[in-house]
Write a protein that binds this DNA or RNA. Structure first.
Length: 644
RNA sequence: GCCGAGAUAGCUCAGGGGUAGAGCGCUUCCUUGGUAAGGAAGAGGUCGGGGGUUCAAAUCCCCUUCUUGGCUCCA
């Protein structure tokens, strides 16, 4: 007999060789039906795999993330089985579960796989699922594993097996399909009841753009049809919050082919929103001891040769601008830091002057690959809420922490709770991608982690995500459709001060080298606004809303009073418009609601006679009539409470 | 840049070899109104661009530009 400890701490005795399924059966038949896999001493196993020793066991169902992963991983195998039936000779790459579903990378030879094929494959999968084929685990030797896939002619699996250790290789078989796989899997294909293949995409084998591009088929599956339906409805809802859609509907920004791809045009309402954010940041920065600076949009090529940007990105950048006469070349600035370094250098610095903090809403231009452009989140011209802090080495951590405070303040003010703090380090396998010496990199990496730890920030570490001149602390946020974007970023940099020969005179009367901290709490105005739009679904906090109120006269007779209210509110910095169209009040209300205007002020005979306004709040309805002064007070309170 | 999908009126979209359609928006007129769409009339499109097939192309084929879902990249 062996002892099995369940998550609630209870211990039960079972025969040696008991399976997760058996354990579930001993609790209830219903549970046994729902068990997808089982966690044995922290490792996820098939629910039908025998347990031979005492163990801590957790039964995993659809309600556990790991249970879902098992389910989707098995769905990927089912997809592969369907593909093999429909397209004999297909070769397989990898087919993992992902956050919302699964995919399989396949080589279909000459077959052009389009979206029309998805439904056919989907039907085949459902057909195969109904066979309730068991997933059978088999240990195989490396030699046998290689032999199997050599005979099958699947070079991708062979490559994968070659990297595996002999003795630890397993195959899984369901129906006529055999795959290299470490598992685990659901008991049989029959539990997969609802399947939707979402889309096809090209994906490079092993993520290497120099290798063959395989066809990646994305799908999602569920144990119940209803759950699939709900999932698809959630996706539809999320699409309604897409900043590209709302940006158009609310007239915030637009693009023009004639202006150029990836070059956003800010419309008046979007510009107001953006300026309010900028002013908010300016005030916060004044408080935090930053000095504003301004630098031009271009800089001599030599500037970027010095900074290292030219060597690193010159080929993949907008090419230099040439002057008509002299042999001069200028680059559109891709970064503000070289300019700020030169500002730092305009006079000698004493250790007593540091830290110096230069802030600029600097517009930069980067040549992004055309396939990368995406609404406002990935563009070719954008404005960073940039600043560079020049400080002594002993001030780095303190300054870094102050910046973290600023970023957190900004996120809090805007109600961003769902972010990840990511420590972005060098790829240790590929140090040639970065400039600067190891010791300084290590020092910077240590300082970032320490600062984050001191702020009690929960961080994830990503290798290979550093900037080429230094490590970063990035604040990542997801958009409506779950795509991750980097917003705020803080970077410690020992390299640029060296390249620009920045100095200050220390207490010892010797020259010393300052350290630079690059930081942008929003990241860029464009991306930040995009994420903000999706975050609030276009219902901006009152203090940011482009139109804070709409004055809606009942009829033409009250236009004059409406104008009077409008200018009185303007004096109190409450912005909006008078809807003086020849429409009925119901219509005006509807239009203001659709445009997500926070306050609607209805004015007619009663209001005019008594100096009042009838107030309606977006999404809430009629708040009743009140004297204008009372509305101003109500507005100001509402505005302040929107500011977290 | 690569693989897939798409582009028809300002917006959202239908149509699919034989003289371009709807709803909303816009303009004009009627209506002067009380908390989510008042009525009528009208203007508006070389069906993204180029080439080909055809008696005839928005429609079929090829190329191209842009948009889009991914991949790679992201100072």
């Amino acid at each position: 007999m062996i002892k099995i400890t369940l998550p609630d701490g209870s211990v039960r005795e079972y025969e040696q060789g008991v399976t997760g399924h058996d354990i579930a059966m001993s609790i209830s038949e219903g549970l046994a039906r729902n068990v997808l896999s089982v966690k044995v001493n922290g490792e996820v196993w098939d629910s039908n795999r025998p347990i031979s020793n005492d163990a801590a066991v957790q039964l995993l169902t659809w309600n556990d993330d790991e249970g879902k992963s098992t389910f989707w991983h098995s769905s990927a195998h089912l997809l592969a089985e369907a593909l093999e039936e429909l397209y004999p000779g297909v070769k397989f790459g990898i087919g993992p579960p992902i956050e919302n579903g699964f995919y399989y990378d396949v080589d279909l030879g000459d077959k052009e796989f389009g979206e029309d094929d998805l439904e056919k494959v989907e039907q085949k999968m459902l057909e195969l699922a109904r066979n309730k084929n068991e997933f059978v685990r088999k240990d195989v030797s490396k030699a046998d594993a290689l032999k199997y896939f050599e005979e099958k002619g699947d070079e991708y699996k062979i490559e994968l097996i070659q990297d595996l250790e002999d003795g630890k290789i397993t195959f899984y078989e369901q129906g006529n399909f055999v795959d290299l796989c470490r598992g685990p899997h659901v008991p049989h294909t029959g539990v997969i009841k609802a399947i939707k293949l979402m889309n096809v995409a090209g994906a490079y084998w092993r993520g290497d753009e120099n290798r063959k591009q395989l066809t990646r088929i994305y799908g999602v599956s569920f144990p119940k049809q209803k759950e699939l339906k709900e999932h698809l409805e959630r996706l539809e809802e999320a699409k309604k919050r897409d900043h590209r859609k709302l940006g158009k509907e609310l007239e915030l920004f637009t693009f023009s082919e004639k202006v150029g791809l990836g070059l956003p045009l800010w419309l008046p309402k979007g510009t107001i929103l953006r300026e309010r954010l900028e002013n908010f940041m300016r005030r916060a920065q004044v408080k935090a001891g930053y000095d504003p600076v301004v630098s031009p949009h271009i800089g001599a090529k030599e500037l970027y040769v010095t900074s290292g940007h030219y060597e690193k990105y010159g080929e993949d950048s907008f090419q230099p601008i040439k002057t008509p006469n002299e042999n001069e070349e200028f680059l559109l600035k891709p970064m503000n830091c070289p300019h700020h370094c030169e500002i730092y250098k305009h006079k000698p610095r004493s250790y007593k002057d540091l830290p110096v903090r230069y802030a600029e809403f600097g517009t930069v231009y980067r040549y992004e690959q055309s396939g990368e452009l995406h609404g406002l989140t990935r563009v070719r011209g954008f404005t960073q809420d940039d600043a560079h802090i020049f400080c002594r080495p002993d001030q780095v951590k303190e300054e870094f922490i102050k910046v973290i405070d600023l970023v957190l303040y900004v996120f809090k003010a805007l109600g961003f709770k769902d972010y990840t703090a990511q420590v972005s380090l060098r790829d240790p396998e590929n140090k040639a991608k970065y400039i600067g010496d190891d010791a300084l990199w290590e020092k910077a990496e240590r300082e970032i982690q320490e600062a984050a730890d001191e702020k009690g920030l929960e961080t994830v570490t990503e290798l290979g995500e550093a900037a080429f001149y230094g490590p970063k602390l990035d604040f990542m946020v997801k958009d409506a459709l779950g795509r991750k974007w980097q917003l705020g970023t803080i970077q410690v940099d020992y390299n640029l001060p060296q390249r620009f020969q920045l100095e200050y005179t220390g207490a010892d009367n010797q020259k010393h080298r300052p350290v630079m901290i690059h930081r942008a709490p929003f990241g860029s105005m464009e991306r930040f606004v995009a994420v903000l739009i999706e975050h609030c679904g276009g219902n901006f906090p009152l203090w940011l809303a482009p139109d804070q109120m709409a004055i809606l006269p009942i009829s033409e007779k009250y236009h004059e009073y409406a104008q009077e209210v409008f200018s009185k509110l303007g004096e109190k910095d409450i912005r909006g418009f008078v809807d003086d169209r020849d429409e009925k009040i119901g219509r005006k209300i509807r239009d203001a609601e659709v445009k997500k205007v926070p306050f609607m002020l209805i004015v007619g005979e009663k209001e005019q006679n008594e100096g009042r306004v009838s107030v309606r709040r977006h999404g809430q309805g009629d708040l009743g009539s009140m004297p204008l002064a009372e509305f101003v007070e109500h507005f100001q309170q509402a505005s302040a409470s929107d500011f977290n």
